[in-house]
Design a protein around this nucleic acid. Structure first.
Length: 809
RNA sequence: GGGCCGGUAGUCUAGUGGUUAUGACGCUGCCUUUACAAGGCAGAGGCCGCAAGUUCGAAUCUUGCCCGGCCCACCA
């Protein structure tokens, strides 16, 4: 009896460890520095170092790895670097939490020290997970070479961020301006619109009595922000509201503060809401900002950037917003001016996406990147890039539509890239350093060669005193250069960037299209005048089995570590491929599903084990049996389909097809029919026929393995190495020849399945073993080419032909 | 309020005009037949969200509605 060459009854996750150890000894996926192959570049999303990988990231990286592995098999030199994000608020917030301090209450040096210590301790847990998942990044070592692991807070990366600022400053695309901004009192910083979330929150409407100066009558105004009465700009009612028409042009007097404002009709007041007459203050929300601008009223800002009331709030000065609200209401109560207090419906409140504090609107000086005037260009670029799935383009287009103010890029935090600017203490002139180095203006004097500097003195007033800028950049100002960074923009080797831009692929989550993708395309276009990406692949969210968002709070989150511990990488990767339907939105994930995918791996292992009993003939046989031609045509069709779909980032459809082929047509039907001929124990078949079987078994297996290699790299590499002694990942992707595909036998897969099904059912119904013989089998004529295989498999004593299958046991 | 997506068995899912609606998990029963019991075979389980329309024919196309998810938007 022939022994299978593959040992072990099933795929074991221990094999993954074995292979990983071999890979680790000699990492096979580095960027080929001297290769002439076309470069395929993937701008991977840098995860935060200090947080463990969640299931969504794990899925995304595994999908990206499939893209990378496939492109390697189609002859590309794949640039697939790992980046780690270490800048910005998440790091600072981790430090605040761990050391239980507010960084804003510390000196800058001390705050930075705490951040660095957080980063130092940050385990490389995420990196380890990627390694275990089999992600084939170019390198796991930090380095500034092509494909090296990079960190967004490295001097090299930060120098490039600052360089892009200097370039844009010199081009006049960046300016400083004082205007009302979104401000997070918790994070103590300005926020871009893209950083704002909305939450449904409840509050109270306070019905407050105002006086009308001219008539002395009372009007009742409902408000959720009584503490802002001190900034009231106008009182409005709807033009169609008969209750208030007589007040047009009269004057309202704000209680206690005594401020006089006009009463006017305005359509933004709704008759049904509140009391129908409302006050507009500066500023309760974005609508107020627009209203003040529209009406040309001078706003009064009563809230400081630390979230306390300022001198414009009179007796409320120095209190927090909440304290001021309570105090003011208390005073109103004493005077009997609060008529009612009713809970509001839940309404959307703008909150900081990180700290979840309610956003305030505060006037401050910040640096801005022009973007409003480029909306048309951005839309053109959005249409130029290829989106996968194509409909995801709309997310970007919608966001571009909603852009209404320029991009505020300066932040009042510490652990981020510094804005590289100094100011002359004498005349205020702006000093801009030369490009190329990493600058820390809060620590260092302006370097020689700076614009506005002459022999170490201000070129305008001759002063030698300078103030370094203390603000830092928005994280997205850093993140938006990742494709420039990995493609060596403005870095050696010379010409690499111009030869290899645009970046082949930006993979990214749909929720950060409005930040990461948008800002990258914007900024890189402003710098280079070109669209930085060719393809954009948008991945969606991982949700639980019922379609609910996963979160630690609701306890339905799946930890990738647990997945790896229980099942290993391969079932997870196969699950991701099968689930990754571009046409759908969210991925459904559960342990059951991942475990289910593992069964297919067992099946694949056993098929390979079976085939390993029949080594391929030394050379391709001169003739192939019709059954074998059919099998080769079937796998050939799948190979052609997979090549086409993989190129379009679709692994779902090919994976589903392969899985079905593997279980059904191949395992259940082809293997059963071909077994006798492959064994040829009683010499019923010729040597040529037997060789045809052995050749086909091995050829189909090889192609299956190659097609699956990008998806499940461990099991395919293990089998291929055992049977063929070569690394599957350096093999070319199968390209079926036209002749194989053109073969059209007179019978189809369905005919074979039907026949086998009927015979097996008939024997079963009689309680006979499947090996038992039958008196007569009548076949449809089109199955004649398969007659010897069919007779041998089903043990028919007599064979005849007719219209339909008939069985006599 | 606007946009996108979805609604098919207990759960999840395939199916974009054509016999009897696919598969998985779960459930019931049977089977150790030399790759596979982490297997094989058989079975139960469906107003294909609702309604109207187009059509010889609709899960599939059109329209309206209902429900769920996500995104965007200025509400006192």
């Amino acid at each position: 009896m022939t022994e299978p060459r593959l040992k072990g009854k099933r795929w074991d996750t221990e094999f993954e460890g074995k292979l990983r150890r071999r890979w680790k000894a000699r990492w096979p996926y580095g960027f080929e520095q001297k290769s002439k192959k076309p470069v395929y570049s993937i701008d991977t999303p840098p995860p935060y170092v200090n947080t463990p990988v969640h299931i969504g990231q794990a899925t995304t990286y595994v999908m990206m790895d499939m893209f990378a592995r496939f492109r390697r098999m189609t002859g590309h030199n794949v640039l697939f670097p790992l980046g780690l994000d270490r800048n910005g608020l998440p790091i600072e917030m981790a430090a605040e939490k761990k050391y239980n301090v507010k960084l804003t209450s510390l000196t800058r040096a001390k705050a930075m020290q705490l951040c660095r210590s957080i980063l130092k301790e940050a385990s490389m847990a995420s990196v380890d997970s990627f390694f275990r998942l089999g992600v084939s990044f170019n390198s796991w070592k930090k380095g500034t070479g092509i494909g090296g692991l990079y960190e967004t807070d490295s001097p090299d990366y930060r120098a490039l961020t600052q360089e892009t600022f200097i370039d844009m400053w010199n081009k006049g695309i960046i300016y400083e301006d004082e205007r009302v901004n979104n401000f997070c009192p918790g994070c103590q910083t300005t926020l871009a619109d893209a950083e704002i979330d909305y939450e449904n929150r409840r509050g109270f409407y306070y019905h407050i009595r105002f006086k009308v100066k001219e008539t002395g009558e009372d009007i009742i105004i409902a408000t959720t922000r009584p503490e802002l009465v001190c900034t009231i700009g106008m009182v409005i009612y709807n033009p169609d509201d008969d209750r208030y028409k007589h007040l047009e042009g009269k004057t309202a007097i704000a209680p206690i503060f005594g401020k006089h404002v006009k009463i006017r009709a305005h359509p933004s007041a709704e008759i049904e809401r509140g009391t129908g007459i409302m006050m507009v203050c500066s500023f309760g929300d974005l609508a107020d900002i627009r209203f003040f601008r529209e009406m040309d009223i001078e706003p009064v800002i009563a809230i400081n950037k630390d979230g306390t009331m300022n001198e414009n709030a009179g007796f409320l000065q120095g209190m927090t917003i909440e304290e001021a609200r309570a105090r003011y209401l208390e005073e109103l109560e004493k005077l009997g001016l609060v008529i009612d207090k009713e809970p509001t419906h839940e309404h959307r409140t703008p909150v900081c996406e990180r700290s979840k504090d309610a956003i305030e609107f505060i006037s401050m000086k910040e640096y801005y990147v022009k973007q409003v005037e480029f909306k048309r260009d951005m839309k053109r670029l959005a249409r130029k890039m290829d989106f996968f799935a194509p409909k995801s383009r709309q997310i970007l287009l919608d966001w571009i539509d909603s852009v209404s103010i320029d991009w505020p890029i300066s932040r009042r935090r510490y652990y981020a890239t510094e804005v590289p600017i100094w100011y002359c203490k004498g005349c205020g002139q702006v000093i801009v350093p030369p490009k190329g180095k990493y600058y820390r203006p809060w620590l260092e004097p302006p370097p020689p060669g700076s614009a506005g500097l002459s022999r170490g003195k201000c070129s305008k007033c001759g002063s030698s005193g300078f103030r370094g800028e203390e603000r830092v950049f928005d994280t997205w100002f850093d993140s938006s250069i990742s494709p420039l960074y990995i493609l060596k923009y403005s870095r050696p080797p010379l010409g690499f960037f111009s030869r290899n831009q645009p970046c082949s692929l930006r993979p990214q989550g749909k929720e950060i299209v409005r930040t990461w993708l948008y800002y990258t395309v914007l900024k890189d276009w402003l710098l280079t005048g070109k669209c930085i990406f060719k393809d954009v692949w948008i991945n969606y969210h991982i949700v639980d089995e019922r379609g609910k968002k996963m979160s630690k709070r609701t306890g339905n989150a799946i930890d990738p570590k647990e997945v790896l511990d229980r099942f290993g990488a391969e079932p997870f990767r196969l699950w991701a491929a099968i689930e990754g339907n571009l046409e759908k939105t969210d991925f459904r994930c559960s342990f059951d599903r991942i475990e289910g995918a593992g069964k297919t791996l067992t099946k694949l292992w056993n098929i390979a084990r079976f085939i390993s009993m029949f080594p391929p003939p030394k050379r391709k046989p001169g003739m192939l049996c019709p059954l074998d031609e059919w099998a080769l045509a079937e796998i050939g069709k799948i190979a052609a389909y997979a090549r086409d779909r993989y190129n379009k980032y679709d692994f779902h459809n090919p994976a589903t097809k392969m899985k079905n082929f593997l279980w059904e047509a191949f395992a259940s039907h082809y293997l059963e029919l071909v077994k006798n001929r492959a064994y040829n124990q009683d010499g019923r078949f010729t040597r040529e026929e037997q060789d045809s079987a052995r050749f086909t078994l091995n050829s189909v297996l090889d192609q299956l393995l190659l097609l699956l290699a990008p998806i499940v790299p461990f099991i395919t590499a293990t089998i291929f190495m055992d049977l063929r002694g070569a690394d599957i990942h350096s093999q070319p992707f199968p390209k079926p020849d036209a002749k194989t595909l053109k073969k059209r036998p007179g019978f189809g897969t369905k005919d074979i399945m039907e026949l086998n099904g009927m015979v097996w059912k008939a024997k079963k119904d009689k309680g006979l073993s499947l090996k038992s013989g039958m008196k007569e089998l009548c076949l449809p004529r089109k199955l004649k080419p398969l007659e010897t295989d069919i007779v041998a498999t089903h043990k028919a004593e007599k064979l005849s032909y007719g219209k339909a299958v008939r069985i006599r046991l």
